[in-house]
Simulated assay, not measured.
Amino acid sequence: MSVIKQDGFDFTFNPEACNECEARCCRGESGYIYVNKTEATAICDFLDIDMKELIDKYLYKKSYKYSIKERKIGENYECVFYDEKINGCGIYEARPTQCRTFPFWDYFKTRIDELKDECPGII
Rank of each mutant, 00 (worst) to 15 (best):
V3T: 12
K5P: 13
D7F: 06
D7H: 09
D10L: 13
N14M: 10
E16I: 10
A17T: 14
A17E: 04
C21F: 00
E22W: 06
C26W: 03
C26F: 05
R27N: 06
G31E: 07
Y32S: 13
I33R: 00
E39H: 10
A40K: 02
A42K: 13
C44G: 04
F46R: 08
F46Y: 15
L47P: 05
D50Q: 04
D50A: 07
M51H: 12
E53S: 11
L54A: 13
K57Y: 08
Y58W: 03
K61V: 08
S63C: 12
Y66I: 08
S67E: 12
I68D: 06
K69G: 07
E70Q: 07
R71T: 12
E75V: 15
Y77P: 03
Y77E: 05
C79K: 02
Y82D: 03
I91P: 08
I91F: 04
I91Q: 06
Y92H: 10
Y92E: 04
A94M: 06
T97Y: 11
T101M: 14
F102S: 01
F102E: 02
D106I: 08
D106S: 15
Y107K: 02
T110H: 00
T110P: 02
R111F: 07
I112Q: 03
D117A: 13
D117I: 14
D117C: 11
E118G: 07
C119I: 09
G121Q: 05
G121A: 11
I122E: 07
I123H: 00
